[in-house]
Design a protein around this nucleic acid. Structure first.
Lengths: 346, 346
DNA sequence: GTGAAAGCGCTAACAC
DNA sequence: GTGTTAGCGCTTTCAC
């Protein structure tokens, strides 16, 4: 296969015996064109497998049919699920997505956003890797519409979509409380993240209302493999350890599961577990994991809708959309029995 | 925030008191420029947060610093892991990725590739959704370098990277055989996919060499939720059912796990399971799942290397790279005990 | 070593 | 309803 040049609009025009303007009008159905001519143009275009050159089109119009997405990681199903939802949403409206990972690093985040902006995208959807979102300034100068997602605490004045983290965590806590658990441990990824802090608050509030002391909160980091080492000390003492654990992210959930197993603790017999996020493996797991489900698809769709609003009227008021989460009760949580509540006395 | 125009090279040139040619030369460090001038240009560029307009740059040079990626699904961690690996590889070489999902549909695949091509990307990496890869013709006419990944059976004459599926499956089968299993069931996603058929062949070959009859092969589809219903009939009869199952994809692995649980079968006591692909949940699972690990990162890196070769010399010989997989022995497989081998007789 | 100017492929005025 | 033409922001000769 010889490397060849893609056909241009001029090629199509020549072959169809019309001007490039007419080709452009037909292909972009912009102005009325004689049906006969239009047909011929379309035929020739198909024949040549003509594809418009978006760089040229964009340069001329100033509009780009692409939305840039920046997330902290492409190895986390939460973020890729979110991207998948956006891709579904922008499909059919003729937009493509260009995606990039900040590797949970502010410096890289800034660099990636900067690179994305050089495409002059129609808009930018970003899951900031920190509350501060320092790269925000970049988007201000470029004038590209932005929607921030998920970690939006410190982010004022721009559209955002997120989840009611307090309520979500409260759901988990109240479920455990309702089952009779009083010693509850919270397994948090990083307390540097406002959404995680909000989830902690939600648990705290629920416990406080129930007249219980504040929960222990353990910070386990962003990757799953180190969790067991960090968590073990909190799980060894049979009479002091928590009976219920709330894991605040999918990674933390995985970590709790393997920590428990390493310690010979059986879920839910020895330990009730509520996870966060909702994936196939949680359902296939034995036992299936009770979890707080974030409406990934809704978040993606909403991010795109909000972005479209900003694109249509950049001067309009930024919107904040907050979704609720749902608790999926499965089998990793159980009502606390006498053996757990009061030791072997009963 | 008022919508504003991004600064152009002209803005930088004016402000720095030089020509746009000089700015271009400095920023692209293309030609030697007086250090004094260069410094000033850089300063002004930073001051204005100047970002080159890639559409304009690309239109002029004909080269685009973007690689297009098309995969069957963005909801499958195998594909997103692969994308993550590519993203890591192209980072730092100044390339961005634009990604798209074919939803495992040939028609959509063609449409998506066609759309990708209109960006005139430096190259295209595609995981075809079928062996035929009918959209290939598109890439031929556009002259965009292509690398096909994973499902490459019917794909001749282009560079490709894949895995030795026969050998991989053989690894799984021989492991089970070594543990004393003789009744082995293969849980395949779709036999329409050549890579899946190759994996079946691998299992078959291993069993044949061991003098055993061919394994039962059950086709369970591409999504996880329907697997239990399809699999159950094969797992009910205690004395006729397989003692070892090989699940040929991560989705199939999940399906087997939940089917077994629904039937009250305990892994590995009642059933040994070897999965495919290797994810965090397999390690966190109880028991941890023995699995054939595909070198995702290697596949991604290799795809990019091969693509770079094609970009550098489009007329060169296409390369085919084939990776081997590794068996991660964990605890979902066990040596077959008397109770399983011969019923309760021992 | 620097600048002037042409032109990449397209679209939007504008003329006809 | 169609064609001519200017020009989007950049890179790349080509003069100087």
């Amino acid at each position: 296969m010889v490397s060849r040049r893609a056909p241009t609009m001029r090629d199509v025009a020549l072959r169809a015996g019309v001007s490039t303007a007419t080709v452009s009008n037909v292909l972009g159905n912009r102005k009325a064109v004689d049906p006969e001519l239009a047909k011929r143009v379309l035929e020739v275009a198909a024949e040549l497998d003509y594809q418009i050159d978006r760089a040229a089109s964009q340069l001329r119009t100033g509009r780009a049919a692409v939305v840039a997405i920046v997330v902290p990681s492409l190895d986390n199903p939460f973020f890729t699920g979110f991207i998948a939802a956006i891709e579904r949403a922008v499909q059919g409206e003729g937009y493509d997505i260009i995606v990039s990972s900040s590797n949970s690093d502010e410096v890289q985040e800034r660099a990636r956003i900067s690179a994305m902006l050089s495409w002059r995208p129609a808009g930018l959807i970003v899951v900031p890797c920190s509350d501060a979102f320092p790269a925000r300034s970049l988007t201000d100068v470029s004038g590209v519409p932005v929607v921030a997602v998920d970690r939006i605490a410190g982010v004022g004045g721009i559209s955002s979509v997120s989840v009611n983290n307090r309520a979500a965590a409260r759901l988990a806590a109240e479920h455990l409380l309702g089952l009779g658990h009083a010693r509850i441990l919270v397994c948090a990824s990083s307390l540097l993240l406002a959404n995680i802090r909000e989830r902690c608050d939600g648990v705290r509030a629920a416990l406080a209302e129930a007249g219980l002391p504040a929960p222990a909160i353990v910070e386990v980091g962003l990757t799953f493999d180190i969790v067991p080492a960090i968590l073990s000390p909190h799980l060894i003492s049979p009479d002091r350890r928590a009976t219920g654990i709330i894991a605040l992210t999918n990674t933390a959930t995985l970590g709790v599961l393997s920590a428990a197993r390493d310690l010979g603790l059986v879920v839910p017999r020895d330990l009730s577990l509520v996870g966060f996020d909702d994936y196939a493996w949680m359902i296939a797991s034995t036992p299936p994991i009770t979890a707080v489900r974030q409406p990934l698809d809704g978040l993606g769709t909403a991010a795109w809708e909000l972005l479209k609003q900003r694109i249509a009227s950049p001067a309009g008021e930024p919107q904040r959309l907050i979704f609720s989460c749902q608790l999926e009760v499965r089998r990793s949580t159980r009502s606390i029995g006498p053996s757990l509540a009061a030791g072997p006395s009963a």
